[in-house]
Design a binder for these strands. Sequence first.
DNA 1: GCCAACGTTGGC
DNA 2: GCCAACGTTGGC
Length: 152
Amino acid sequence: MNYWLMKSEPEEFGIDDLKARPNQIEPWDGVRNYQARNMLRDAMQIGDQVFFYHSNCQVPGIVGIMEIARAGYPDDKAFDPNDKHFDPKSNADKPTWFRVDVTFVKKLSRTIPLTELKQQPALSDLALVRRGNRLSIMPVSSAQWAFILSLE
DNA sequence: GCCAACGTTGGC
DNA sequence: GCCAACGTTGGC
């Protein structure tokens, strides 16, 4: 069992959007960064737990938990010329980009803001709080996971 | 809206 | 393969 953190802008797709989806499941697509791609494609497994992080909003922070419902498979939005995430260099025979499916688990009782996460020595190795890090998907250790939950 | 940090692109 | 230019991310 692995733990992860994934960012999304709530104005684009927030945790309430996931909660409102039929069966509370959604493909996590549109990721166009190779490091993140490798995690989607190679490392994420069904049942892995994921923090849902709201970025680019009034209070950036962790707002809930979701679970991987389907392991990495090709992101076919890269094949659609009309889609915002179209990539002419990716094709169905040899896809460049991947996605997973996630399901809603729960909202936290409060948002745990980035400012608070940054103050925790126990989280100093977490990519999220390191200066200049813009990864939209990152691994979280089991110790970090438990510690963050203890802040709730 | 600003801008620092970072990834990607493309000329050479 | 170097590196300047450019585009994007995302906190503030």
